[in-house]
Design a protein around this nucleic acid. Structure first.
Length: 365
DNA sequence: GATTCGTGGCA
DNA sequence: TTGCCAAGAAT
């Protein structure tokens, strides 16, 4: 019965809830950081990042006073880097405008960068004990199954119905635990595949369970296939044995992270020609492409790449940041101080296993 | 409303 | 190997 949904769920939650680090604090700032990191990201992935981030920035003021590169270095590998940039910006707003204290109204907290409907409800309910219902992927799955909603969950109308159900079910006394309990149920019991209905505290009232339709609810229309690109990048060494890296613009994909210069292979063009063209466009230099250093596959959120990295020698010109924010020559040891996206990080890790002397044969002549 | 935004785990 | 999905937000 839905009138006992919250009661049964909360009893289960108190017994089964996982021992997560952000459940041991009542500091709104720490809860805020956890909710941003948890967007589209699994609990097990977030835990070490959360510890490192809060060790470096124990208060809103520490984060507000940090520089961007330090914030992004701590976000390196976590993905969706605009989350880190927006969190940093929002911390500065909270420090300046609210004296370091996160506001506790839906309107004010939603105005902060990176806080949308989910995060606002999560923070207000968990940190401030206010009865705002969260709607995330877990809640959508639990609610559509429980009420037997079979329409496409991509549609806004379904998401609104889910939100209305959640708002109807959430109790006024412990809204934070209720929200976390629904999400916990979705993450551990009411899973996308092979849900463990025999262990579910609300299975008795669940329509999908009663009708054996958990395999088709929730329904989601197929995603479009994502494209695959070939990428060519250049590794350039100067006479000090340093490598050239480029900083991506703040508003771009992977903004604020570093990379080896290069770009997308055009059809009809060899990869060597791609590297020559891209370095001409990006750096304003002419290069000779020598041997391949590494080749790797990587999947971003909306396209896949095969990345080909080549050792290059500058024939003429002096590198200028024509399409990047800035350029920098760094030693093998200095590489690790900079935040790199995953695919470039693979290249960096390989380079760090080289000896500096091994770079000599790729020096500019 | 549809797209853009990372990365890792899993069947 | 491939596609799906994960405590979504911004445009």
């Amino acid at each position: 019965m839905s009138d006992r949904f919250a009661e049964n769920l909360l009893t289960w939650y108190r017994r089964e809830k996982r021992d997560l680090p952000w459940r041991k604090t009542d500091d709104p700032y720490r809860i805020w950081v956890s909710e941003i990191m948890l967007q589209q990201t699994r609990v097990d992935t977030v835990i070490p990042y959360w510890h490192r981030f809060l060790a470096a920035f124990p208060t809103v003021h520490h984060l507000a006073n940090a520089d961007r590169q330090q914030v992004l270095k701590l976000w390196e590998g976590l993905g969706y880097y605009s989350r880190g940039r927006n969190l940093h910006d929002a911390a500065r707003t909270v420090a300046d405008k609210y004296d370091g204290r996160l506001p506790d109204t839906y309107e004010k907290i939603s105005a902060l960068k990176g806080i949308g409907p989910y995060s606002a409800a999560a923070i207000l309910s968990i940190a401030f004990n206010k009865p705002y219902a969260v709607v995330d992927g877990n809640v959508i799955r639990v609610i559509t199954r429980y009420f037997g909603i079979e329409e496409d969950i991509r549609s806004a109308s379904v998401r609104n119905r889910v939100r209305e159900h959640a708002e109807e079910l959430i109790p006024n006394n412990e809204p934070g635990d209720f929200n976390q309990a629904v999400m916990e149920l979705g993450a551990t019991v009411c899973t996308p595949k092979n849900p463990q209905c025999s262990s579910c505290p609300v299975s008795a009232g669940c329509i999908a369970n009663q009708t054996s339709r958990t395999d088709v609810i929730p329904y989601k229309s197929k995603a479009k296939k994502i494209p695959h690109h070939k990428i060519g990048v250049g590794l350039i060494v100067n006479q000090s044995g340093k490598l050239l890296i480029a900083l991506r613009p703040e508003d771009a994909m992977l903004g604020g992270l570093w990379e080896f210069p290069g770009g997308k292979n055009d059809t009809g063009e060899s990869l060597e020609e791609t590297v020559i063209r891209e370095l001409r466009e990006e750096l304003g230099v002419e290069v000779r492409v020598s041997e391949k250093y590494m080749q790797l596959k990587h999947a971003y959120s909306h396209f896949k790449i095969t990345l080909h990295a080549y050792w290059c020698t500058i024939i003429s010109g002096n590198p200028q940041p024509k399409s990047s924010e800035k350029l920098k020559w760094v030693s093998l040891d200095e590489l690790e101080q900079h935040p790199f996206p995953k695919a470039n990080k693979i290249l960096v890790e390989g380079l760090q296993n080289m000896q500096p002397e091994d770079l000599k044969r790729f020096l500019i002549k």
